[in-house]
């Protein structure tokens, strides 16, 4: 915007030419200078690896026949999609459940903090973020101990005869979904909190003045105004949760393999780099498409317009 303003403005006639030129070009370059560090970072660590990913996904060959060569092997995509469709679907299903569970868990919590947290808001928020201070993998491994067949929770219950001996939580889809939900809860809670916190509390009072019930005020004022937060929460939770492989690897069993685990196996055990890259490419494309659809349905622009109307 700043740049455009500078170029479109008619130059004041009195100004000396040289000085004006230097000033304008300097001003014109400022946005680019500001973009440079982040831009270079993204170029190096996002665009370049993405290019390698796509390049690798179009290679053919094999480990035992001289490695892989670039041959525009588009059939890689078809092959892996056919073979691993099921795991994409499973990952999406898990991830949708996780996203909904995170929203359901985080909404009342953040709502309460935003509206009734008072002076302690920041402290409560910190409590939500506290798990972040411990490594993701360590936390997940702790779950394994916690939920072990004769661990802290199931052990005593079994000893009391409340649960059958063979009962187990680990290695079930529930364990995986619950683990991901736990790990991504803060990603949902933070954006939700930001959206709820920003809501002008007087709007709720106004709604009540206009004879709305508490529920109606919540339903027609608070919820619509928090939609942008829900959208951000969705993005931050749904996308990484779909690609997650740590929870399935640590808490899951044979029936809970997610697409992230397949990609990991392809890459690190089978050394089939081209297929691993193709799978990653498909996952990424699927995410972009799904998120775009979601954005159309619940897009932030429409939300803002609706809120203004």
């Amino acid at each position: 915007m700043g740049m455009r303003g500078a170029t479109l403005e008619a130059p004041p006639a009195q100004e000396p030419k040289a000085e004006r030129g230097a000033y304008a070009s300097h001003k014109r370059l400022v946005p680019y200078w500001l973009l440079t560090p982040g831009g270079a970072w993204l170029l190096l660590f996002l665009v370049f690896p993405l290019f390698i990913l796509l390049y690798t996904s179009l290679e053919s060959g094999g480990l035992l026949s001289g490695g892989f060569r670039f041959t525009w092997q588009f059939s890689n995509y078809q092959t892996v999609l056919q073979q691993y469709q099921k795991y994409f679907v499973r990952s999406l299903v898990y991830s949708i459940i996780v996203t909904i569970a995170c929203l359901v868990l985080a909404y009342p919590m953040t709502y309460w903090i935003a509206f009734y947290g008072g002076r302690r808001k920041s402290s409560f928020l910190l409590l939500i973020l506290l798990p972040f201070f411990v490594s993701f993998v360590i936390r997940t491994i702790q779950w394994k101990f916690l939920l072990g067949d004769s661990g802290m929770i199931l052990g005593p219950l079994k000893n009391l005869g409340l649960l059958p001996r063979a009962f187990h939580v680990l290695a079930t889809p529930f364990a995986v979904v619950a683990g991901i939900t736990y790990n991504y809860l803060p990603f949902t809670a933070l954006p939700l909190y930001v959206a709820l916190e920003r809501i002008d509390k007087r709007l709720v009072e106004a709604a009540k003045d206009l004879y709305s019930t508490r529920w109606q005020a919540f339903r027609h004022v608070v919820v619509p105004l928090s939609v942008p937060g829900m959208f951000a929460a969705f993005l931050l939770t749904f996308v990484p949760a779909t690609g997650d492989y740590v929870n399935a690897a640590i808490l899951g069993g044979p029936g809970t393999t997610m697409i992230g685990n397949i990609i990991q196996t392809k890459f690190l055990s089978e050394n089939l780099y081209n297929q691993a890259a193709a799978l990653s490419g498909i996952l990424m494309a699927a995410m972009v498409v799904l998120v775009s659809i979601y954005a159309r349905v619940l897009g932030t622009e429409e939300v803002v317009r609706a809120a203004a109307a």
Binding site: P49, T56, Y273, N274
Partner: peptide, 21 residues
């Protein structure tokens, strides 16, 4: 190659995969 290490190794292997041919 537990999950932790795997993430760090990923990029190296990816670059490695590029070099074949």
């Amino acid at each position: 190659g537990a999950g932790t290490g795997a993430a760090a190794i990923g990029l190296g292997s990816l670059l490695a995969a590029c070099g074949g041919g």
